[in-house]
Design a protein around this nucleic acid. Structure first.
Lengths: 233, 233
DNA sequence: ACTCAATAATTGGTTAACCAGTTCCTAATG
DNA sequence: CATTAGGAACTGGTTAACCAATTATTGAGT
């Protein structure tokens, strides 16, 4: 297990090394948007790493929109100037795994916005889905069972109803990390589940009534404990 | 080129098919958190796809925290119940490329928050970096050159100074898409660049003075045109 | 019958060979 | 000399064989 972690760290470092090397290469050769990078084989030889590692690094930079691979043709630098390229790669290299506080802070930001948008834009279908999640949550809680999943699904239904695909995606990204951290640090273990039901109902009603201010307010109350945790601890 | 797009779409669909198949398998066999999935080879045979495709799909589900691969051991379902698993996979399958409006809306949300946090938490080093980006921007604008990159770097410096790694990451993710769309739809082509310099300076000063309210207000003014574009068009 | 070491089978990860297009150079032709 | 068909070389993507580590199985020894 320890070895596994070490291996992953090592791979992580080698990928960072490759990304930095690609950046240096772009600077050295003054590659501009649209220019072609050397082939994956040449890069792997030049950096003394496997071609698979090169592909991985390129895919990551492709994800951030800095490179573009065209099959049977080559890899090209995207329509971003060298300065932005350097700045962004520097940031990407510095990126670390988000701390729990950042996650919670971001979740609160997203939820307060999505709940407002949901109140403005929700369709009838959205209402149905939220209602289903809501009742599944209530049922489990009233049976005394653990209802973390159902809780989560209700919030994701709100994100979906917001009609903003970016925020929906971001919620999907941070949610599992939030869950695992919740379990790890035992957050919200003591909170009263019955109160949770009422808060969820209030949020749902505000969205149903298309009242964005109220929806945001109710969501804020729902996050009161989390808020404390985030800013007092 | 058209073929390329078709190929990508096809791959996209085959990946979705695999993800859905994995979900069905988990439901069919009632796999619970910690249970082991069939090996990649068996899955590839069962779904009649290449093992590479299976690996890709598993990696995606791993990114969303739903699965976990342990080398030389197997792939395991994460500590998330079947219900949440189903809901999240459904959402992931439905995920579409974000529309421009969603991107802008999300960017505004993130920037208004990060600028506030930056005013509260910025270090001296953060100030230096922002100052450098600021002056590079001013210089280019005063020379009548295009300064989209420098503009962007200033905003990324703010995100970094916010001290929230999640928001920083999200800003990095949406920024390149914003840029390409800006270029595509010719947003902000007519805006007066000189005004942009003053607005940037005002934002910087508010952060330097640790005045979060003012910083947010100045950022809001900076985004006035974008705001209009996002909510009026 | 039980233990536990030795081995065989299975796992995810990695590497190298292969594939189908693309690109670029060559040389034959008008 | 210019043009263009032909092909060689190169491209990213794909596949299959390989690897080291883990896990399951076996069977000898007590």
């Amino acid at each position: 297990m320890k070895l596994d972690i070490l291996t992953k760290t090592e791979n992580f470092d080698v990928q960072k090394h490759i990304i930095a090397s690609i950046r240096d290469l772009i600077n050295l050769k003054n590659l501009e948007p649209g220019d072609k990078l050397p082939s994956e084989r040449m890069l792997s030889e030049r950096f003394s790493v496997s071609r698979g590692n090169v592909r991985e690094a390129i895919q990551k930079l492709e994800f951030y929109g800095l490179l573009e691979s065209i099959p049977q043709s080559g890899t090209f630098v995207a329509n971003i100037g060298v300065i932005a390229m350097n700045g962004m790669i520097e940031d990407i290299l510095r990126l670390e795994a988000p701390d729990f506080k950042s996650l919670v802070e971001t979740r609160i930001l997203l939820e307060l916005k999505t709940v407002r948008l949901a109140a403005l834009r929700r369709t009838e279908d959205d209402l149905v889905e939220m209602k289903v999640a809501l009742e599944a949550f209530s049922k489990k809680v009233r049976n005394g069972e653990d209802a973390v999943q159902e809780d989560l699904l209700f919030h994701l239904a709100i994100a979906k109803a917001s009609g903003n695909s970016s925020m929906n995606t971001f919620m999907l990204i941070i949610t599992p990390e939030i869950i695992t951290n919740f379990a790890k640090y035992h957050v919200c273990d003591t909170s009263n589940a019955e109160v949770g039901i009422e808060e969820h109902n209030a949020i749902f009603k505000a969205i149903e009534d298309k009242n964005p201010q109220l929806a945001k307010k109710k969501m804020k109350e729902h996050f009161k404990e989390l808020y404390k945790y985030c800013y007092n601890v």
